[in-house]
Design a protein around this nucleic acid. Structure first.
Lengths: 252, 252
DNA sequence: AGTGTTTATCGTCAAGCAGACGACTATGAT
DNA sequence: ATCATAGTCGTCTGCTTGACGATAAACACT
């Protein structure tokens, strides 16, 4: 199979983003409304073309800023705060996934705390945080009784893959702290796990597990009562990124 | 940012393969010698362009057949035998990763039992199974004392990522059976773990673990003495793909 | 001030699993 | 017959988990 550099088939390459956050006890994803065909008016994941001089991670970080204002967390500066976690998810390249042309999309997964208001090129009505449960029930009905159209392109699959990645990765890593502000309580972290997994966890056992894992949480000394009840210690994420033994996701 | 279908930047899209097997107690990867510039004469991972009408997984499966003769295991036919396990690994798109043009490579990971002789378009001298330890020690010297040139392009990184994926995934899945023939003994499976992780495992505890996990191994009834010593029961992989609790990779 | 509610945190106990390791078994090689 | 090799079954100890009781410290009422 001789190599002919002038005869390679041309592709368009895009990045799509699964941006997840936890709001009001539910795992939510960022969705944007499409302004042009195909799938005009339908909800989709944010994304765009990779530029000619850009790395894939750079393109994902740029799209993240454009769509949310969130800066991506730079792994080379571990001590820093509120950047979003950003990692490559998977690549989707079915020849028919875009009806216009051959597009290969490198999907990325971003995890962010619940601070930012969505913005899509400044137009808030075309971007929203939607519970993933709602986005993933294709052809069903939303909480308002209105029928829910499925996401554009193959974004249903991409979102499902991103959610599954997040659900499994918080088991064995400190990734759940990416959903929290820079200082947080054990209870707030527990509510992240509960929202992402959709289960209830025992507060006492959870507390024992996370405070007993060396390097996972470091106390800041402060306390807060922002959740009500007895004041809780504030922590920030420790250096440990791998959780061993892992946090066990309950069965059933 | 208006959409202009005629103005997307063109990319070449390739698939590269990290094909792993276990030979003579060592984790080995398939390497092919490059016949043309750039990196002419250097070792590289097998790969090639994605065709215009081809899915990414199809392209990877086709390259796997072309380079090794191995058919990819079809997940829709779980009862079958000796196809190789094939999964997408990650995508690499640094603008400078190929000096000729902008190439985005979707790397795939394949795991195969130690049966096939390598072939690279029929030319065996241009393909070999090399211990990953040897391929990954850049700028060092091989077992024969000859200096080892690093792999072409960014294939060092791709191989390292693939090896790490395999090492972590056998912890919590039945993936290690992909390195075994369709019928195998507990000891053979243990030697796979030992080769992939580069550690020694206690045969008694390993035996207890794998035979005690429901659905992981199913006995075929037969026995073999091909490893010497007392005859060992033969098993085949059970339906369980997730190992819970996981097999623990020893520290240090 | 007292009472209830909420959340946080500490302890206890039993079951299960992992690591270390002894003992025995069944084959082939010498 | 003896040895070496590999496989298989048990035992013991320590750690982790899951279930859950009990206490602590705030706030919201009355």
């Amino acid at each position: 199979m001789p190599y002919d550099p002038s005869a390679f088939p041309p592709f368009a390459v895009t990045v799509d983003l699964v941006v997840l956050t936890v709001r009001r006890h539910a795992l939510c994803a960022l969705a944007v409304r499409r302004g042009e065909p195909p799938f005009q008016g339908r909800w989709a994941l944010p994304g765009g073309f990779v530029r000619p001089d850009e790395d894939l991670a750079q393109a994902a970080a740029r799209e993240l800023v454009e769509e949310t204002g969130l800066r991506a967390h730079d792994p080379s500066v571990p001590a820093q705060d509120n950047g979003a976690h950003l990692e490559q998810l998977a690549t989707y390249g079915d020849p028919k996934r875009d009806p216009r042309m051959r597009v290969v999309s490198v999907a990325h997964l971003a995890l962010a705390p619940d601070l930012p208001a969505p913005r899509a090129g400044g137009d808030a009505s075309n971007a929203r945080w939607a519970p993933v449960e709602e986005l993933l029930q294709q052809g069903g009905y939303g909480r308002d009784g209105e029928p829910v159209a499925p996401l554009a392109f193959d974004h249903h699959q991409i979102l499902a893959d991103g959610v599954e990645r997040a659900r499994s990765k918080i088991e064995y890593s400190s990734l759940a702290t990416a959903f929290c502000p820079s200082e947080f309580t054990v209870g707030e972290l527990r509510r992240v796990y509960e929202a992402v997994w959709g289960v209830a966890l025992d507060p006492r056992n959870f507390h024992r597990k996370v405070t007993g894992t060396p390097g996972f949480l470091v106390p800041t000394g402060g306390t807060t009562t922002r959740q009500g009840g007895r004041p809780a210690q504030l922590f920030r994420a420790g250096g440990a990124t791998l959780l061993n033994p892992p946090m066990l996701r309950p069965e059933v």
